[in-house]
Design a binder for these strands. Structure first.
Length: 585
RNA sequence: GCGCCCGUAGCUCAGCUGGAUAGAGUACCUGGCUACGAACCAGGCGGUCACACGUUCGAAUCGUGUCGGGCGCGCCA
């Protein structure tokens, strides 16, 4: 409808150019908007205001000229000039009701569009270190990423969802050491647990599972483990202490058994994260292992590629990437003086790998604490000859957690955190998914756990689900009330839908496709959530103002058809957000 | 110190590419089920859009500065 009105305006302006009223080279930027106040019609354009300067005429005069030269159509019943020169358009009931036909024709596909042009996009999100369960801070990235993936998919992108498993590096070795010490403790070999180890109780569970699987084959005496270790904090250095324990574990266990312990921790936690996310309605196409990069020499290859392009130099025994040549604050080490590659080197290799896999656009959803990495990763891409604009980084701001007015600190290492699973158990999947995704990603979010739990019944998601359930139950109970619903009869009588609440509901339904396109292009799934609240509100208002189950067969069928079209759009939208559309509540 | 994000009603948040009288939810106050689901609806109360200057027909929106909050600035991962 907007496009139609825009084309009418364009034709009118062309007519005026031909008549010599406007200069032939006058450029018009035609915008058509939905009006907020229905006294201003259904659609409005500010075109006369934007033309005022170039045409050297009073905006109201221009508006009058445009109105006088509009081609007549059945869709536009009236135009009006208001305020400083807005043109208001009143749309016929017939044209408005046509949206119901479209919804019924397309069903689950209503709202799909092709703004993505089948472009292949990879979206990587959550990617939390597999050193502990996901906590509520990860939930936001999960909800955002999953919804964005769904959104881009219906907008015509070819989407691949990926989780980058940080299964290499020191943190994983600390986890392995923690598991082993807990395993030894189960055998009665008491060793003071390092202050820098993973304290969470899940580590004990992994150790117990390991013990039932391997028996006592990994046991070593307390003396053998602790002999000659540097002191732990507070007397000594906790980092040196834990590193020494890792070395001792490797030495006593040997490479094969060390790998058994390491894998016990990694596999258990990664699988747990996977299950957790599935239950949260979040699914991936690929779980990409960081370790696979080094196994396949991809890190060396990436460094070589930078070297070949002459962006690497050696200093103090280390290899440096000259990222300052691409806008970074300082150059970055990719290989340390001890020969080990850095985490950044893995990241370069990983991003190179992504583009080598053929994705046209790569979207990274990162926590806000990673914003400092954007410049250096993009620098590396540029240095390797890849257009850095093909990498889109969306930062998700942290949820600041409160319990009442008390700030809650989250730390995986200390084991003091609220898990995503706990939140889901107490608040529910639908309410928590909706809660996260209602706020736009870059907005800071205050998350009061007490409030989230106590107010879960008031979560707006139920308002939307209720509208859906209400329609389902209305249809389901028709038979018991000696009534029926015939969609064909309804479609044949759409002109009966002339009440304000019906017009408003149909206009809201018509917005859905453009909301999808707009939200997809802006990477903003929260727009869907807000749209659905408004749609549900329109329906509830309608439902309370008018009866559906009435004797007038034509009007009854028309109203029920409008209601089921509404149900379809509610279901389509909720599906994008990973929220169920229940038939009963 | 430098960089990124943010500041809108008591609270939690929307506000499209600059557009008409800045909107929801919640809290508080009224009213509405002997008719389709009251997890609902109708109405009321509530704002110096952090502050200042600028850009222009028009600024919550764009620009500069100030104040306030979050985060980041390692041969850690």
């Amino acid at each position: 409808m907007k496009q139609l009105v825009a084309s009418l305006i364009a034709q009118s302006i062309d007519n005026l150019k031909q008549a010599g009223t406007f200069d032939a080279d006058l450029q018009a930027n035609i915008q058509v908007e939905n009006t907020r106040d229905k006294q201003h019609g259904d659609l409005a354009s500010n075109v006369a205001l934007t033309l005022a300067k170039a045409a050297r005429r009073n905006p109201r005069e221009i508006a009058q000229l445009i109105c006088d030269n509009l081609p007549a159509t059945a869709e536009v019943t009236k135009t009006d000039i208001a305020g400083p020169g807005f043109i208001n358009f009143f749309i016929s009931q017939d044209a408005t009701a046509a949206v119901i036909n479209k919804i019924i024709e397309h069903g689950n596909d209503f709202g799909k569009c092709q703004v993505g042009n089948n472009q292949s996009v990879q979206i990587e999100f959550v990617s939390a270190n597999p050193t502990g369960p996901l906590h509520v801070g990860h939930g936001r990235g999960a909800a955002y990423g999953a919804s964005l993936g769904n959104l881009l998919s219906v907008a015509g992108y070819n989407v691949q969802r990926e989780y980058y498993v940080n299964d290499a590096g020191r943190q994983m070795n600390i986890l392995a050491a923690s598991v082993w010490l807990r395993y030894l403790a189960l055998a009665g070999i008491e060793i003071t647990f390092p202050s820098n180890g993973y304290q969470g109780s899940y580590v004990k569970d992994i150790a117990a599972e390991l013990k039932t699987r391997v028996g006592n084959s990994l046991e070593h005496s307390a003396e053998a483990v602790t002999q000659g270790l540097p002191a732990d904090a507070p007397e000594g250095d906790k980092e040196a202490h834990i590193d020494a324990i890792i070395d001792r574990a490797r030495e006593l266990l040997g490479p094969d058994n060390y790998e058994v312990v390491f894998a016990a921790g990694l596999d258990s936690i990664r699988d747990d994260i996977k299950d957790d996310l599935v239950e949260f309605g979040v699914n991936y196409d690929e779980w990409f292992s960081e370790r696979s990069l080094s196994h396949n020499d991809q890190i060396e290859k990436a460094i070589k590629k930078l070297q070949d392009n002459d962006h690497i130099y050696e200093q103090e025994g280390a290899l440096w990437f000259r990222s300052t040549a691409f806008g970074d604050d300082k150059d970055r080490v990719v290989k340390r003086d001890n020969g080990q590659t850095t985490y950044f080197a893995s990241d370069i290799a990983y991003h190179l790998n992504k583009f080598e896999r053929g994705f046209e656009t790569v979207i990274n959803i990162w926590g806000a604490d990673h914003h400092g990495y954007i410049t250096r990763v993009k620098a590396a891409l540029t240095a390797m000859g890849i257009d850095a604009d093909r990498l889109v980084v969306k930062l998700v701001q942290f949820a600041i957690l409160y319990r009442g007015s008390e700030r809650v600190q989250m730390s995986t290492r200390s084991g003091s955190f609220v898990t995503l699973r706990e939140l889901r158990d107490e608040v529910g999947k639908d309410a928590s998914r909706f809660f996260y995704v209602t706020r736009k990603a870059e907005q800071h979010m205050d998350f009061d756990l007490e409030l989230a739990k106590s107010e879960s019944k008031d979560n707006p998601v139920y308002y939307i689900q209720y509208a859906h359930a209400r329609i389902c139950s209305m249809i389901a109970k028709l038979a018991t009330e000696d009534m029926s619903w015939d969609q064909e009869v309804g479609l044949a009588n759409l002109e009966r839908l002339d009440q304000d609440a019906e017009i408003a509901l149909m206009q809201q339904l018509e917005l859905y496709p453009e909301i999808i396109a707009h939200a997809a292009m802006a990477y903003e799934p929260h727009q869907i959530a807000h749209y659905l609240k408004d749609l549900a509100s329109n329906f509830h208002t309608y439902y309370n103002a008018h009866r559906m189950k009435i004797e007038d067969v034509e009007l009854r069928n028309a109203r029920l058809t409008l209601s089921t079209a509404t149900r379809q759009v509610l279901a389509n939208g909720l599906q994008l957000l990973g929220v169920d559309a229940p038939e009963k509540m």
